[in-house]
C-alpha cells in the first residue's frame, strides 16, 4: 500500500466519497459490479493473503444472506418462481436482492479500504483545516485512549493479584469493574496534570498556533485529482440524464447499451480500478528498478 496511500489526503477523501456515493445511488447492476470488483481488487492489493481469505468467507455468507432475504419479504414482480407459505417468490425480487447484496458488499469493501488508507492523521489533517482546535483535541484523544486502556489493564491485574473481588461471581465482577474505574479516574486526572504542564512548558496558549502537517500537495496529486474529476463527471452526468436507469419491478428492465451508457460504464470502471492500477504500476516499476540494480 505504498502508491495510493501516499496521495494527498484531500484527493483520497474525494476519491473514496465519489466511488462510494456513485455505487450507492446508481441502481445499475453494471456499475455495482464494477464497484464490487474494484473494491475487492484493491482490498487484495493492500491486505495480507491470510486475512483476505478469512474475510472472503465472511463476505460470501453476508452476500447470500442479503440476497436471500429480499425475495422472502418482497413479493413484487411478475415472474413467480415458486410459492412459500402461500407467498410468491419472484425472479425480480431475487435479482433485486442480489443487486442489493452486490452494492452493500462493494461499499463495505470500499469502507475497509478507506479505513486502511485514510489513517487518523490524514483525517485529522483534513478536518484540522476547518476547525484547528478540534483537530488538536482529537489528536490528544487518540493519544490518551490507548494509554488509558493499557493502564486499566494493569490496574485490573494488580487488583486481581491482591485477591480483591477477583472471584467469578457477578457481584465480584461488577465491584471489580467499579474499582478499576474509580482508580482510573484518579489516574486520568493525574495524567492530565502532567500533560498540561508539558503543554504549557512548550508554550501552549501563548500565541496563535500554526498548523503543521507532513502532507504536501504535489504535482502528481494535482494530476490525479484532475483524472478523478473527469472520470467522476461522466457517471454523474449520465446518472442525472437517466442514461443508466434500471428497475426491477414490475419487470426487469433491459441493461442499457447506448454509447452514452457505455461511456458511463467505462468511466466508472476506470475510476474503481484506479487505485489497484496505481499499486500495480508501483510494483512493476519497483521490480524494474531492482532488476537494474
Amino acid at each position: 500500500m505504498k502508491a495510493f496511500g501516499n496521495i494527498h489526503p484531500s484527493v483520497l477523501m474525494m476519491y473514496f466519497l465519489s466511488v462510494m456515493l456513485v455505487s450507492m445511488f446508481a441502481s445499475n447492476p453494471i456499475i455495482q459490479a464494477e464497484a464490487l470488483f474494484g473494491g475487492a481488487l484493491f482490498c487484495l492489493c493492500i491486505q495480507k493473503r491470510g486475512t483476505a481469505l478469512r474475510d472472503a468467507g465472511f463476505y460470501i455468507s453476508l452476500f447470500l444472506m442479503v440476497a436471500v432475504t429480499n425475495p422472502l419479504f418482497s413479493h413484487n414482480g411478475k415472474t413467480p418462481l415458486f410459492f412459500l407459505n402461500g407467498n410468491p417468490v419472484t425472479l425480480e425480487a431475487l435479482l433485486c436482492g442480489v443487486s442489493i447484496a452486490v452494492m452493500v458488499i462493494g461499499v463495505l469493501l470500499w469502507c475497509k479500504c478507506y479505513s486502511e488508507i485514510m489513517t487518523s492523521d490524514k483525517f485529522l489533517y483534513l478536518f484540522g483545516r476547518i476547525i484547528p482546535k478540534l483537530s488538536l483535541v482529537l489528536s490528544m484523544a487518540l493519544r490518551f485512549i490507548p494509554a488509558y486502556i493499557r493502564q486499566s489493564r494493569r490496574v485490573s491485574r494488580a487488583q486481581k493479584a491482591m485477591g480483591l473481588y477477583s472471584g467469578k461471581s457477578i457481584s465480584d465482577r461488577v465491584r471489580n469493574r467499579m474499582r478499576v474505574l474509580t482508580a482510573m479516574i484518579s489516574w486520568s486526572l493525574e495524567n492530565a496534570m502532567d500533560v498540561s504542564a508539558s503543554m504549557k512548558a512548550r508554550g501552549y496558549g501563548q500565541k496563535k498556533r500554526t498548523d503543521f502537517s507532513i502532507f504536501r500537495f504535489q504535482r502528481s496529486d494535482c494530476a490525479l485529482f484532475a483524472v478523478c474529476i473527469v472520470l467522476l463527471s461522466v457517471p454523474l452526468v449520465g446518472m442525472a440524464a437517466g442514461v443508466t436507469d434500471f428497475t426491477y419491478y414490475p419487470g426487469i428492465s433491459r441493461i442499457e447499451t447506448s454509447p452514452a451508457a457505455v461511456a458511463v460504464y467505462a468511466a466508472f470502471g476506470a475510476l474503481s480500478v484506479l487505485p489497484s492500477v496505481l499499486e500495480a504500476k508501483e510494483a512493476i516499476i519497483w521490480k524494474y528498478y531492482v532488476s537494474k540494480i
Binding site: 487518523s120 489528536s139 493519544r143 494509554a147 508539558s198 496558549g205 500565541k207 496563535k208 498556533r209 498548523d211
Partner: peptide
C-alpha cells in the same frame, strides 16, 4: 508516558513550534 501530548511522533515534534506560531516551512 504522560508528557506526550499528541498521537503521532511527527506531530509531537512539531507541537511546540506550532504553539509559538512558527511558519510551517520553518517547522
Amino acid at each position: 508516558e504522560s508528557q506526550i501530548v499528541t498521537d503521532k511522533v511527527w506531530h509531537e515534534l512539531a507541537f511546540g513550534l506550532e504553539n509559538l506560531g512558527v511558519p510551517t516551512d520553518v517547522i
